[in-house]
Nucleic acid binder design. Structure first.
Length: 575
DNA sequence: GCCGTTTTCGGCCCGACTGTTTTCAGTCG
């Protein structure tokens, strides 16, 4: 049984225990153990056979026993019991915002509600509001919750939520007494999707600022408005809405507030435990000894007082970040070029010259023009003849354009049989080849599975990087089934880079896979796959993904200077 | 269920907002 499978079963067990009303501390201990196991790379089966499971922090006798049971039988008796016991209506009702375990159980008991339709009927008929302890306001709140879920109230891609948050932050700057505004929450941690937008503002007129916030023209619904916190929903560009929380924090507490509302929740719990161990307490207003605030104005000061180095927001996930010195993570300033972009030659909107000029404005030293190969007909992929002409065109612009190195590249399709879409003679003329799978067939047409196709491309001497390796589109298309440990090992061995595609729809490799690639000793590239000049700005999304993976600039191919890049390519071709 | 530089038992992060009550429980983050 793989670690991943064991983790999945333990998570399911924790979820069901929670639904069954098991006390929170026991449920949490399972969740904590799972996080710890994730961070612990050793094979659980091996550890179980050596009786060493309890060496994992957070795993004691009880959980070790569960894991041993899974390893030896592949099943978990307690999980099977709970699956029978927990009623199916419970998770359905709990998924509605405004409904927790108490009210859900009450509504089920009094009205026999078991599904969404029944819940709606109970609200519309007024029966729900008549239940003692509930009321009209509660019924209205649940109705709004249902509407939110039905209008696609799921998680929103980072690339959609971030610009929205930034635009809102700009408006919040002008509310009463506001001196400073910061985006917090999972958005600040750079998660690939977010459930809501958290914004902090520094002001001494909290109540007034919150009132003004809830009256902004973008606001659709006001969920709460108090002295320090306001909660609203705003419209999403593609329909639906997203929740936005604004917290008003005074200067002396701003760092503590930022820390608290950046999370993650689990990271905060670790910090608060650490504070308790020092006989202090930590909340969103500061680090306190009794009622005396020791620090609170900045995150840096709080980490320092707790005897910790500053932890970059992207790493605050309780994955062991407090137990090791955080690396000097890659930043946007480290990027010296973009090695995957398109032009009008295939399906881009701008010319080679325009892409080069836009890259120069962003301070880049080099770019690679990588238009589609012939099989990507839908993307106007280049036939061999058109590619030959395009090669001439790129060379011509490269000669005429001082100040930036333009690499002659292509995004060459990986075909279903593992062959590349261009013969080696064409690839050999390129400076930089990105190989990507666009065809995803798994039926009879596919002679090799996605893993084998990717491995074949990795081994080609002309392939410098694998583009968007899993092919997933966030919230729209699942990743291909790829054996990632094999792929990252082969990439590292062959000197083939794996791409973090920074396009907001992709972010592929995702953070965990990028972390695997780094652990295997591989090299990454962070590229925008831009189809127009403005899309070059998506680089920052790739950067936060790389930071979440713990990447430093040393392991990113487009963070080296042009000469080093040429050496890296030469090494790959010689290999 | 886990854990220990005060602890092998008794803790386990902490606060805001709302609604229904009449001093607080439920929900959320």
């Amino acid at each position: 049984m793989t670690n991943e499978a064991i983790i999945e079963m333990l998570e399911k067990l924790a979820d069901l225990m929670e639904l069954d009303g098991v006390e929170a501390f026991r449920v949490n201990s399972y969740r904590r153990a799972v996080r710890s196991i994730r961070d612990f790379k050793d094979d659980l089966t091996v550890l179980a056979n050596q009786n060493r499971l309890t060496e994992i922090p957070g795993v004691g006798k009880g959980i070790a026993g569960r894991i041993a049971e899974l390893v030896s039988t592949g099943r978990l008796a307690e999980l099977e019991t709970l699956e029978q016991k927990v009623p199916t209506w419970l998770p359905t009702l709990l998924a509605m915002p405004g409904l927790g375990p108490k009210k859900a159980a009450l509504i089920h008991e009094k009205l026999g509600v078991t599904d969404l339709a029944g819940l709606k009927t109970a609200i519309e008929s007024g029966k729900l509001a008549e239940i003692p302890g509930l009321g009209d306001a509660t019924a209205k709140k649940i109705a709004e919750g249902i509407q939110f879920i039905e209008s696609g109230g799921g998680r929103v891609p980072l690339g959609i939520a971030l610009p929205l948050a930034e635009a809102l932050a700009e408006r919040i700057r002008y509310l009463s007494g506001v001196r400073r505004v910061e985006i917090a929450g999972s958005l600040r941690r750079g998660k690939e999707t977010v459930a809501d937008i958290d914004i902090l503002c520094e002001t001494d007129q909290g109540e007034k600022a919150i009132k003004e916030f809830t009256s902004l023209s973008d606001v659709r619904r006001v969920l709460a408005a108090g002295e320090t916190k306001g909660s609203v929903t705003i419209k999403l560009p593609e329909g639906g809405e997203i929740q936005v929380d604004l917290r008003a924090i005074p200067t002396e507490s701003f760092g503590a507030g930022l820390m608290s509302f950046t999370g993650s929740k689990e990271h905060n719990i670790r910090l608060r435990e650490r504070a308790i161990a020092c006989k202090w307490s930590l909340n969103e207003y500061g680090l306190f000894e009794g009622t005396n605030r020791l620090v609170g104005e900045s995150e840096e000061a709080i980490y320092a007082k707790l005897g910790l180095p500053f932890v970059p927001p992207e790493l605050r996930e309780d994955r062991g970040e407090l137990d090791r010195l955080p690396a000097d993570l890659v930043s946007l300033d480290d990027i010296r070029g973009d090695l995957h972009m398109h032009t009008v030659a295939s399906d881009g909107r701008n010319s080679i010259e325009e892409m080069a000029a836009a890259a120069q404005m962003r301070g880049y030293e080099f770019i690679a023009i990588c238009d589609h190969s012939k099989s990507s007909t839908i993307a106007n992929g280049l036939s061999i003849e058109r590619m030959e002409q395009h090669i001439e065109g790129i060379r011509r612009v490269a000669r005429a354009k001082p100040g930036i190195h333009i690499l002659l590249g292509c995004e060459c399709d990986i075909l279903l049989d593992g062959q590349l879409d261009y013969p080696d003679e064409i690839l050999a003329k390129c400076d930089w080849v990105v190989a990507s799978a666009h065809a995803r067939a798994t039926g009879p047409a596919a002679k090799l599975n996605p893993t084998e196709r990717t491995l074949a491309a990795i081994e080609n001497r002309y392939v410098c990087a694998i583009g968007h390796p899993t092919g997933r589109l966030i919230n729209r298309r699942p990743p291909m089934e790829i054996d990632m440990p094999r792929v990252v090992a082969a990439a590292a061995k062959n000197g083939t880079c794996l791409e973090i595609n920074a396009s907001w729809q992709r972010l592929d490799l995702k953070d965990e896979h990028a972390q695997m690639a780094l652990a295997a000793g591989g090299t990454l590239t962070i590229n925008t796959d831009a189809h127009s000049t403005d899309q070059l700005d998506q680089m920052r999304l790739g950067i936060v993904t790389a930071r979440r993976a713990g990447a430093t600039k040393q392991s990113i191919a487009n963070c080296v200077n042009y000469n080093e890049l040429r050496k890296l390519i030469a090494r790959k071709r010689g290999a």
